[in-house]
Design a protein around this nucleic acid. Structure first.
Lengths: 413, 413
DNA sequence: CTCTATTTTTTCGAGCCTCGAAAAAATACT
DNA sequence: AGTATTTTTTCGAGGCTCGAAAAAATAGAG
């Protein structure tokens, strides 16, 4: 609201509009783009001709609307895969993975690596990340000239500027400005993204019909995380990545959470909490890491017999339900995606969750709240990072126009 | 993101920018406006000359920056009070008030009226509202030609389109589309706003240095309400006015709330909850209305002796603290304004509140979270409605330009 | 009292941008 | 081969913002 619109912004914004229309639609014709953007055919024609000239878009075969219509056939416009490339770096518990993605969104290279994140000292952890990036950049097999953007994803809290990891469960280290480190090391603009936010971005991309303007992605894993999209935009906190659903208070003074506090949702619904409860340990017991295989075994046992295992999942569902109820009181109900290893046990969680949510103001129409599950978070996080990085190239670099880019040449920031 | 920017939008947006700069700054010179909007002097000159021509702005004496500077003195631009007028209608428990406000924001007429909202049937309640509006509109003393906009505020839940009251504690009636009713009756565009949202709007206007981009206004009255501003914008739910802080869950299955559910924050911190607790009644006891005088007496007694009254306020503080902690986990901490009769007893509430919040993830820096109090909510709500209505005139009517207004002539919607 | 320095505001032409209408292009149908 | 139909491009008109220069309005100096 504070700054006016300059005349040159106009073209930039409309170019961005066309690029994003093509990214979303795949192979839209100029006419389709004109329809979705509301701009005139002349404008679309002028802009797309520029974009083709600059090598950002390329003409492809018709949109293939099935039956051939009379009249001049539509020419599909597609992203030119060679226009740019981006890189994703995903750091999760004991695991580091990197992918290189062309401008059209296809993976052209990747590398994965196990490492002991929990005990690794600061220098080593940073070194591993820069080393894996360097290996991909210097790979002679890779036929991309340069990487335009790096998006790094990590489980934990990042700052709202997407520059640094503030806190993460995968390492005792705090406040690592990965974005700055990568930029300094490679001279490539980078961001540091929260894993759950990237999950949400990926879902929005994968299933736009279901996850569009308002939805919630919840990670049910060792910890409980959330990515929240409201009014079509990723919701972040004012200082941090925000959306720390797992640390909303379920029971004041209750079970011990990994964060050191008591009564958080996560202290009832995180893997370690379910494990602790299933093994009849005290709610004060120190959180321990539980492997995915152990969790799957636990879920299997809970399905078999009505014992403490089943009760543990029930308690988790209750905590999630009341937490969602409180969340829905603030933002109104929205579709939910449950992601992560415990999402595979959602059948054990759902009944108690729905019962709890029905007792809250936000759950007035609890039956209409729909849940979907996706057990594997890593591909989602990677996809989200890729879309994030590509979106940056679309909006910040290519929308600016060729002369703005070559002329001024300050594309960092 | 879906619609492009048309060429004619440009002028409209920049006009809006200039108008809002004048509304905020009071009497800025053209040069100041150019500086704050980032637009060129030529553009500001052209736009302000148009706006003066159309009678929206008027030149006034210099901005009076104190010492007279050398050079051509600045000419202040001010809103022309006669450019338009708006009306606010605020419906609260047993009380209905209306004000007429000129374009510069000054109250030019008002009327207030007691009525028994709790027992009034639907027709009667609507009738009272339309009648009081009609009386003000037809008042011969009123020298405004026409009212450009009505903003109605009510305690309770409204829909996200600001058309209807969905639920309110002041009446058993539900789903009254006041905005539609007023529009149909008087042919004046109207909106139905949530009281706490309007409090937040007013605070942003009154104290922009403190309440700017991110802050929270909490109503401590019979019920507990919240208005939330994030990134400078009022936060609303996806379907309703949202931000139902009072109905976040404090203790699952806990005290009986006025909403019929259990364990809501309000069931511990609403006036009725404090009263119930202070009088040693059961947490299941039906909520009853408590007058402001009684609440003030209760607070006085709590300050005198360490009895059940003081304990009641402590419990209220605890509920608010844990609730805020959960909220801060989602959005990060922000300044808080406590408004309403129990805000005057915030000294009794604050210690327990801070203690509770310190036990939450969001309260990590609980000492840096600052609270301010304002015992009287009604003036705030009125002011917020006024600013809301004026903002509509600024952005939707006057920004469009004279020919767009007179030419097409479809200003409704 | 006049002249100069300084600051604000307006004027004017240049350069873009979008738009509508018309033309051109490309195909299916007759 | 000709016609109808649909898509895309071309072209001139009309607007908008911008920078530079001019005009306006005042304080201070002599």
């Amino acid at each position: 609201m504070s700054v006016g619109i300059r005349h040159d912004d106009l073209r930039r914004r409309n170019r961005a509009m066309v690029i994003s229309a093509v990214r979303r639609a795949g192979q839209p014709s100029r006419t389709e783009i004109a329809a979705t953007t509301g701009l005139s055919h002349s404008t679309i024609s002028a802009i797309s001709s520029d974009l083709i000239q600059e090598g950002i878009l390329a003409e492809s075969k018709p949109g293939e609307t099935g039956a051939l219509k009379r009249g001049r056939p539509q020419v599909g416009l597609a992203l030119n895969p060679e226009a740019a490339a981006v890189m994703t770096v995903v750091l999760s518990l004991n695991f580091l993975s990197v992918t290189v993605i062309d401008y059209a969104g296809h993976v052209v290279a990747e590398e994965q690596r196990r490492l002991d994140t929990l005990t690794m000292p600061r220098d080593k952890l940073i070194g591993e990340c820069t080393a894996i990036v360097r290996r991909r950049l210097e790979d002679p097999d890779l036929d991309v000239q340069s990487i335009a953007r790096i998006a790094m994803g990590i489980q934990g809290i990042t700052d709202s500027q997407a520059r640094a990891m503030l806190w993460s469960p995968i390492t005792p280290l705090t406040d690592i400005a990965f974005a700055d480190i990568l930029e300094a090391e490679f001279g490539i603009p980078a961001t540091m993204e929260n894993d759950c936010n990237m999950m949400a971005v990926a879902l929005q991309w994968r299933q736009p019909e279901r996850y569009r303007d308002d939805f919630i992605a919840i990670l049910l894993s060792h910890g409980i995380g959330m990515g929240l999209v409201l009014k079509g935009e990723l919701f972040t906190g004012t200082h941090s990545s925000g959306g720390e659903f797992g640390h909303m208070i379920h029971r004041p003074g209750g079970a011990l959470c990994r964060c050191g506090r008591r009564g958080c949702v996560e202290a009832y619904a995180g893997n370690y909490a379910i494990w602790r409860s299933a093994k009849m340990m005290s709610e004060d017991a120190e959180p321990v890491d539980v492997g995915d295989a152990d969790m799957r075994a636990l879920a299997a046992r809970a399905r078999e017999t009505d014992g403490p295992e089943r009760e543990a999942y029930r308690k988790a569902g209750e905590a999630l339900g009341f937490g969602l109820g409180s969340l829905f009181a603030l933002i109104d109900p929205a579709p939910v995606a449950m992601v992560g290893v415990s999402a595979a046990a959602f059948d054990l969680i759902e009944p108690a969750l729905r019962e709890a949510i029905a007792q809250t103001a936000g759950g007035q129409h609890s039956k209409s709240i729909s849940f979907d599950t996706e057990p594997n978070e890593l591909p989602l996080i990677r996809e989200g990072c890729a879309m994030r990085a590509l979106g940056f190239v679309d909006q910040e670099i290519f929308a600016a126009g060729a002369q703005a880019r070559t002329g001024a040449g300050k594309n960092v920031a």
